[in-house]
Design a protein around this nucleic acid. Structure first.
Ligand SMILES: [Zn+2]
Ligand SMILES: [Zn+2]
Ligand SMILES: [Zn+2]
Ligand SMILES: [Zn+2]
Lengths: 165, 165
DNA sequence: ACGAATATGTTATACTATAACCATTGGTGT
DNA sequence: ACACCAATGGTTATAGTATAACATATTCGT
C-alpha cells in the first residue's frame, strides 16, 4: 500500500507517529548512532502534527512536558542530530522543522506548504528530481543537496476558499 | 544574445549592475512605484556581487558608504519593497538576498548555490517549473510561489576540488 | 574501575527580523 | 499657495532564531 502523501488527507495520525518512531529506532540501531530519550522525545514532538515546528515552539512543548531542561542549545543539538540522520527536514522559509516520513532512503527535501492551514506534505517526484539534476548538470553544477519549498493552498483550504463566494 | 546564467562564468560584472539598475528604474516607472535613492542604493549594493547578501552585511555596507542612517528597519523596508517588486529574491537557507537578473517577467525563485565560493546563479528551466507544477497539481495543491535552493559546487570550485589529489 | 568519547546542562551572546512611534517628504485637490 | 493625506524614512526598543564556550554527566570499550 501507498502510505505516502497523506498529510492533506484524513488519516489516523497515530500510525504516522508510530511508523516514524519505529523507523527511527531501527535506523539508528543499524547506523550505530544513539537515539537518546531526548532525541526521541524531540522527534515525537515534531511528529505531533504535519505542521513544521519552530525550535522555540519545541522548547515550549518540552517545558510543558516538564520532564527535562529546555535551553536552546539542548534542543538545537537534538535537531542537528535528527537532521544529520535525515529523520527530519528543515523548512528554510519558515525556520521550522518537520518529520521525514521515509528516512530509510536518502532524498532531497521537497515540500508542499499550505499558506492557510500550515500543513506540509513531502513530495517525491522523480520528474522533479531529475529535471533539477538535469538543469544543474547543464550549468556544470555538482549537486549535493536540494531544497524545494512550494507554497500555496492544500486541497482542503483551496475548496474552503472557493466556497467563500 | 543570451545574457543569462553567467554568475559562475567570467564576465564583465559592471554590465550586470547597469542592466539591473536600468531595468529597475524602467519597471518602477511603468508600475508607478518609487525607486527612491535608498532603495536604489540597496539594490546596487546587493548587485555588487553574485553572492547573496545578508541584511546586516548590507547595513554595514551602507554605514561604510556613510551617506545615510542605517538602522535595521530602514534596510528591511527597502528589502521588502525590492522583494515586492521582484527586483530581488530571498534565499531562505542563507537568510540572504540576491538580485534578480530579469525582473521584467514574474517567475519562481530557483537557484544554484555554491557551498564553496558562495556565488548563486538563478536558473530558468521550464522542465523544472513544469514538473513542480505537475507534482503539486497531482496532489490537488494550488501553487502560489516556489523556492528551489540547490546546493553543491559550481564548475570552478568543482574543478578546483578535483585538482586536490 | 578507568579513561576517552559522546551527550547534555548552563550561561552568555550573536544574528535575523519586526513593532511602535515620530518626522519628513511628495503628491492631490481646492 | 494651501491644507490634506499617503508614503517614506528615522529612531528606539524588542521579538525571534541560532550558536559559542565551558561545565557536568553519561556511555562504552578496556
Ligand atoms: Zn499523519
Ligand atoms: Zn491547508
Ligand atoms: Zn555579474
Ligand atoms: Zn563556487
Amino acid at each position: 500500500m501507498d502510505n505516502a502523501s497523506l498529510a492533506f488527507r484524513r488519516h489516523n495520525h497515530k500510525h504516522c507517529v508510530n511508523d516514524a518512531l519505529h523507523s527511527a529506532v531501527t535506523l539508528c540501531e543499524e547506523r550505530g548512532v544513539r537515539l537518546t530519550p531526548l532525541r526521541k522525545q524531540v522527534l515525537e514532538l515534531i511528529w505531533q502534527s504535519h505542521k513544521p515546528l519552530g525550535a522555540y515552539a519545541l522548547i515550549d512543548l518540552l517545558a510543558a512536558e516538564a520532564t527535562r531542561q529546555v535551553a536552546p542549545p539542548t534542543v538545537y543539538r537534538a535537531l542537528d542530530f535528527l537532521l544529520e540522520q535525515k529523520l527530519i527536514h528543515r523548512i528554510g522559509a519558515l525556520n521550522a522543522f518537520i518529520g521525514c516520513p521515509h528516512p530509510d532512503h536518502s532524498h532531497a527535501s521537497h515540500f508542499l506548504l499550505c499558506d492557510e492551514c500550515g500543513r506540509a506534505e513531502e513530495i517525491h517526484s522523480k520528474a522533479v528530481s531529475d529535471s533539477i539534476q538535469k538543469a544543474a548538470g547543464a550549468a556544470g553544477f555538482a549537486v549535493t543537496s536540494q531544497s524545494l519549498e512550494v507554497f500555496g493552498l492544500c486541497p482542503d483550504c483551496h475548496k474552503r476558499s472557493s466556497a467563500d463566494a
